[in-house]
Design a protein around this nucleic acid. Sequence first.
DNA 1: TTAGCGCATCTTTTT
DNA 2: GATGCGCTAA
Length: 763
Amino acid sequence: MNQLEKHTILNHNDYLSTLNDPQREAVLHGEGPLMIIAGAGSGKTRVLTYRIAHLIENGVDPFRILSLTFTNKASGEMRHRIEGAVGTEARNIWMGTFHSVFAKILRIEARYLGYTSDFSIYDTDDSKSLLRSIIKEYNLDDKTYKANVVFNRISGAKNRLVSADDYINNPAIQADDEAAKMKEIGRLYKTYATRCFQANAMDFDDLLFNTNVLFRDFPDVLYKYQHKFQHVMVDEFQDTNVSQYLITRKLSAVHRNICVVGDDAQSIYAFRGANIENILNFEKDFPDVRTIKLEQNYRSTGTIVNAANSVIARNKSQLKKETFTANEEGSLIDVLKAGSDNEEGRLVATAIFEEKMQKALRNENFAILYRTNAQSRSFEEALRKLGIKYRIIGGQSFYQRKEIKDLLAYLRFTVNQRDEEAFKRIINLPKRGIGDSTVAKIAVAASENDLPIWDVVANIGNYASGRTITPIDQFATLIKSFKILVEEGKDAYEVAAHIAKASGILRELYEDKTVEGLSRYENVQELLNGIKEFVDNPESEDKTLSAFLQSVSLLTNADEPDDNNDNDRVTMMTIHSAKGLEFRNVFIVGLEEDLFPSQMMLESRQDLEEERRLFYVAITRAEKRLSFSYAESRYQWGRLKMCEPSRFLLEVDPKFLNASRILHGPERDSSQPAASSARNLVQRKSTEYKPVSNVAPHIPSEGFVPTDTFDLAEGDKVEHLKFGFGEVTKIEVNGSDRKATVKFDLVGEKTLLLSFAKLRILK
DNA sequence: TTAGCGCATCTTTTT
DNA sequence: GATGCGCTAA
């Protein structure tokens, strides 16, 4: 470290004086286990940053600090801030997400587990696609065995460290599956695991599962890392699952310097196996733990903090914690009520526009938070119309686009010819006349001769004859030529640029002159630029294609290629990805029953508490001003759905709501859903309906009537809040789905889901 | 045997 | 809005 850098180190007085007592105590805590229960906005990241800086100042080698987070965003932010405090030494800290850090370790130790260090990482799409083909091979009904469900069962098992054999031999699990009429899941799990292994591939859960196996079966390896990491820190501890917790516990068993930071009120990943119990178990596993609570909120106004507390207080399971703030009261929470999703978009966009003008704010001061990614559309359109720049985090991320995944599949297959999913993706791309049945034949030949698929492809002449031989042979030659580049030691960019051209991917996209084709071409170019950046970045020590793939497969939405110098944008994202962030003004939108709280969550887990914590997380993102919005109807799958306001609106203590300012825009909505493909437009035309205008705005002051159940019969006369008078022509009951077709005087026939419909029966 | 088209189906959240 | 599946023409 040079003199100048040393100068940037904060001295004790500088930073300690800015902390309150519990914060300072957490920073200065020396050896031994430490648990920090940190409420929202309590300066948690600052404490963690200073703590690490303090350790380094006191002589701890950065190489011997392991700091784990959940998102790339969070770890990038932390690294940046530590660098600000201690200089470039911060780069040496082992810091990253659980998945990226342990992927790195697995890559180093791969041979112990029978993998090579070039192993592929299957993303969720790869996993599901593999499962689909296994389900097909077993001739199981894909209606009962849905890839999604099977995948979730397997994932859940892995997160509890249940191997395929454990799964099959566990009577309780088997009884469970039997009850769900899916007793073959164990077999599917076993085959899935085998196929992943044969493909030299790990899925996301394997990265943690296999780390556990590595540390369990190879004490020497465990010993090495146990001694290496003198200090272990875990951020967002409430979101760790059993698998993650066991890894960190093992790693810190020698030095016992483990510091976990969490807030049980913000645990929102139970669906991924997160286990609040970990917080409770922690005190059992480390009886000498020092527990520090950070309860003062520095982020939000009094109104926001108190409103958040009024919501979370309804949860039964929680640790004792009193969050408070010394900040100003601030303004009340606005409630925006819209007639449709498009109008909701306009109301929010207008509110942003006006607030921006009045208070001279920047776009980046605003965030729109929603429960599901699909909700972003109406806000995009409205913001665009007002000329407000925005960015969307998440959703269909850059790395999930077809053209990107296609090129990445080529790169993956070049590095790892056993990667079955990559193979399936590229064997006939661009079209070279190798169809499904040919691929199936290759697979048969491979399993008959007990060889990897690639061995058959590379020597296709020995296994088949006929017309398909030529294109397969050409494909094999192509891949071999790519491999040679890698072996010659060319860097990731050189290889990738060559592959993009030689594979024909670029040419095919270039010839597609449609708007979509153009943007795909640009996306591929952008990926190549990204690879160039990776290669040119002095921080990446390993510039091989393999290293690039490892880093890129763990990137997701948070790490979109940046639009650089243009950061003044309104941010839109799901509440899940908003955790850890803060914005001056926040809009929580789509506050409708069954959307937020999500219907699925209520049906499958009966867990309203997690949804409520999610609401709590959303509220506490706001610094100065908070708005809620909901729509009375919204398009879903090309259909109009009637909505009830969310019960969560009622759970906020009304004294924090600005009920007098409930906004209601004019309903002159043509409600044309955005049509991206002509094909779907034709399909949608048949269900098109004419909107009705002028619904009397009703103000939810007293509360909302809970959804009624109706005893409808054909021939009943009904009144609908929005469509007027009508007569029921048909009733359909399909499981929990109850649909009524009603012929309205004004708008013709409508099919309504009864749970959503605002219907009144006329006697 | 492959490629292309129309149809049906399913939607939570993330690494 | 997106994706998989099955039918049909070449």
